[in-house]
Design a protein around this nucleic acid. Structure first.
Length: 424
RNA sequence: GGAGAGAUGGCUGAGUGGUCGAUAGCGGCGGUCUUGAAAACCGUUGACCCGGUGACGGGUCCGGGGGUUCGAAUCCCUCUCUCUCCGCCA
């Protein structure tokens, strides 16, 4: 969430910035400023009363020690009124603060200047593309047909065991999953990311920290008996490592990577978008997370994009990198690049990675700060993350694009991790 | 799952109703000494909020929440977590 101070000091910048996300912030900003003013006045009054109370209590202690019981009794009577007014002011303060918090969490992050105007995916900006489109003699088969033909993925069996969107990978299909996970983790390690193996379930506080709660509650699986949530991405546990942490500037940038299974209820999805591997309730992903100095975060973002690009290049997939327009961006992001790979049989681009700079939007809620030098005040760090990469659509594209009459070929870079170069 | 003990500042650890944001040690930072370093010695060292241009002043925070009291780290209730023993077990 945005910081109160920033909104107070730059109300117009907030309103103008959020217009790019097609969000009308004028009313909320105005309310926040008015409420904050009233909250501050209440605090000033309450603090004064509390100071008086503290002094009186101290005096009573001294009087009692000196045996002046009567005077102490008189002082006690005076505190009763004071006490009641403090109670009222504290209550009013808490109520106002609660209102402000409720308004604050409604404000999306402000897009950075580079973000193009636009209202939907059509207005996104293609930054660059690479790889070549495959050509086929016969008609290309979609990955669900190929998965069945080579016995790689059993979607129906997943339905039997759990439900739709929980596929069972088997044989070379399972080995391909494992190979991709290891490939992505090893590449990330070589690029300087520390590997983390996080819990796949998190508590409520972590859900709040990264903003899944309270808004996207319905998108997460919830183990109600213990009040744990299955993670929708490793971003949640990994970023929450740094909740309530003050880092030393020397430690920046922090670079972490993590594999996790990801669980998403995907309530509301239907139709051909969910066919095969296109949209699943459980899937595998390697995530990269960075914590950067505010002055460096956009450099870091570009580095992350370059890194993710190196992965799709090694997998020899036709890809394009897109800068999302304001209208298509997520709530928490200041700038997002999406990576898409071409699905030859479905004849469409599939999103396989989303790399974002959240600036201080996440760290404000997380209370993730750093200290430039000893003695100086801590300030909010910038957080960034990206998929590097999500498996299912990569697998879909690999299967579809590399199909030959003899079988499916494995990109050379992946063969050492797979242990085979052909699925047939 | 049953029984017991505990949660204090970056860490260890005192403090059981009255100037306690909190003794002490370690660590960190600054200095003296040294060619330099170590050792020793001296000083310093939490976060957040409000008011003030500022010096500074005030407030909140001793796991979370609530209560008792003029006054709570200290007493009571409750939740969470940790440890020990027993049970079970990959």
């Amino acid at each position: 969430m945005l910081t109160l101070k920033f909104i107070q000091e730059n109300p117009q910048q907030v309103i103008d910035g959020l217009a790019k996300k097609r969000f009308d912030a004028a009313g909320i900003v105005q309310s926040i400023i008015a409420l904050t003013e009233s909250k501050n006045q209440t605090q000033a009054k309450a603090d004064k009363a509390k100071a008086e109370m503290n002094n009186t209590a101290r005096d009573i202690g001294l009087l009692l020690r000196n045996g002046k019981t009567e005077e102490a009794g008189q002082a006690k009577e005076r505190t009763a009124i004071l006490k009641e007014s403090i109670r009222e002011m504290d209550q009013s303060f808490a109520e106002t603060d609660e209102k402000i918090q409720q308004l604050l969490v409604q404000l999306p992050n402000i897009p950075c200047n580079l973000v193009p105007w636009g209202k939907s995916a059509e207005d996104n900006e293609v930054i660059r593309s690479g790889g070549s489109f495959p050509e086929f003699a016969a008609e290309a088969l979609p990955h669900w047909d190929l998965a069945a033909r080579y016995n790689l993925i059993d979607f129906e069996l997943g339905v039997k065991l759990t439900g739709a969107g929980f596929p069972v990978y088997r044989g070379k299909g399972a080995r391909l999953q494992r190979a991709l996970i290891n490939f992505f983790l090893d590449e990330a390690r070589k690029a300087g990311f520390e590997e983390i193996q996080p819990p796949f379930m998190v508590n409520e506080a972590s859900g709040f920290g990264t903003g899944q709660l309270p808004d996207k509650e319905g998108q997460m699986y919830h183990a109600t008996l213990d009040n744990f949530y299955l993670i929708p991405t490793a971003e949640v546990p990994v970023t929450n490592i740094y909740r309530d942490v003050i880092l030393d500037a020397k430690e920046l940038p922090v670079k972490n990577c993590a594999y996790s299974a990801c669980f998403r209820r995907e309530a509301g999805s239907y139709g051909k978008d969910v066919r095969g591997l296109n949209r699943l309730h459980q899937f595998d992903k390697v995530e990269i997370v960075e914590i950067a100095h505010p002055e460096k975060s956009y450099e870091v973002l570009e580095e992350m994009v370059t890194y993710v690009e190196s992965l799709v290049k090694k997998l020899e997939l036709p890809y394009r990198i897109i800068r999302l327009c304001g209208g298509d961006m997520g709530f928490t992001s200041a700038m997002t690049y999406d990576f898409e790979v071409w699905s030859a049989a479905q004849q469409k681009w599939l999103e396989v990675s989303s790399v974002s700079n959240f600036e201080s939007f996440q760290s404000n809620r997380l209370k993730l700060r750093f200290r430039d030098e000893a003695g100086k005040k801590p300030q909010l760090a910038h957080t960034l993350n990206g998929s590097a990469l999500a498996l299912p659509r990569i697998v879909a594209a690999l299967l579809e694009n590399n199909q030959t009459p003899e079988g499916i070929t494995i990109p050379a870079a992946l063969v050492p991790w797979c242990g085979f170069d052909m699925i047939n």
